[in-house]
Design a protein around this nucleic acid. Structure first.
Lengths: 217, 217
DNA sequence: TAGATTGTTAATCGATTAACAATC
DNA sequence: TAGATTGTTAATCGATTAACAATC
């Protein structure tokens, strides 16, 4: 299993896509697939798919292909989707609430156990069995409950400070929606969802297309 | 300007980050910077930063560095942040509403002009000056209004169909929040925000850390 | 068996980093 | 001028693709 140590992030980012497409095949009642077929679905090359999977072991059968359900289970195991995760959301504004309602959490055993905000109007409200609590109670809460993942949906002005508080309370995995890079110790993993970078990138390509179009006229 | 044609996506994804940090420098009243300083802030190497910027022209002064405000303006121009963009959001559920409230739109001249949903309970509601309209009126609306960017926040079951409708009505830029890859013609640019892939990736690294920790004990 | 497709090594490609001449 | 830092070319690194032997 030592191989795992040096898997490139690019590979890890492709695994969820394989997982998703294998799920679609399962739903369609298809139980056998090949790197060629997965290539057509995902847009990645067949060669790359075989390389990716072989980072973790040989899941296929030469001359035959891959068993859909087996491969899907193996990827689930690699990603850790066979475990349970308790989640809290810090910041219960628009994005925080939307994340609390996020149906993607049902794809594995993720449970949002609480939200935190300092707005008194929000405190006490519930979203899908999770209550919005006072931010002042965050540290006490984390002392009692073993939380796996914290989601940061606060304004960027306080995101660094919130992150440091979370880490002090033992959090090692942060899903960060605040448009700011968090400076964190090495043993904390931060996954950023920086909407502004995504939107700006889209804007660039939109303009580039328009320029090309007007050039061809 | 033909250079623009072949800029790698990796470069484009870094530009918004440069832009953001230059904004922070401006706010701090700092008007001169260097690739070394930007490197410390962004975590990218100084060499890479110089390479990236020189894809678009020489914005610096040898022996001196970069003028913060000038460089920021140049990047804004490259990304197209000096233009106006009209946006619609299709799907006014949790995520759609959160996006309508997204304050990042104020960082440039983005305007959400309408949302669309087929839920009668939502139709007629307003979010920050944008009304939620009946999805049945989407095509009529697009005929009358010139829209630049469409955001897809529908369930994944209808996202492909919605995207095709948008493209038929002349949309070329899609910000896709549905957890599904859209099959689109070449002249349509899709920027995906696939939360499930981000969450699964976070889950992988969280587990890897835990495995390493328990190994060292 | 013949055909198919994996697993894996080698070749290619592209992106990042290093180095340094140009020059402010 | 001397010092500093860019712009740019060359070297390195890593990721993707191609090729093919292994084998079901």
């Amino acid at each position: 299993m030592d191989k795992h140590d040096r898997i490139s992030p690019a590979v890890i980012r492709r695994l969820p896509k394989y997982y998703r497409y294998l799920g679609e095949l399962t739903k369609m009642g298809i139980n056998k697939t090949s790197s060629r077929e997965l290539s057509e679905m995902t847009g990645f090359s067949a060669s790359q798919i075989r390389q990716d999977l072989n980072n973790f072991g040989g899941f296929g059968q030469q001359g035959f292909g891959y068993d859909v359900e087996n491969l899907r289970n193996e990827i689930a195991k690699i990603l850790g989707l066979d475990n349970k995760y308790k989640i809290i959301i810090v910041g219960a504004g628009n994005i925080g609430q939307a994340i609390a309602n996020y149906t993607g959490f049902y794809e594995a055993d993720y449970e949002v156990v609480a939200l935190f905000d300092k707005n008194p109007k929000l405190i006490g409200m519930s979203i899908r069995n999770a209550m919005i609590m006072d931010s002042d109670d965050l540290e006490d809460f984390l002392e009692k409950e073993k939380i796996d993942i914290a989601v940061i949906c606060t304004p960027k002005s306080v995101s660094q400070q919130v992150a440091e508080q979370l880490v002090r309370c033992g959090i090692h995995a942060i899903w960060n929606f605040a448009p700011k890079d968090l400076k964190m110790p090495e043993n904390v993993h931060v996954e950023n969802v920086h909407l502004n970078e995504s939107l700006f990138s889209l804007t660039y390509y939109y303009n580039r297309m328009n320029k090309e179009k007007s050039k061809n006229e």
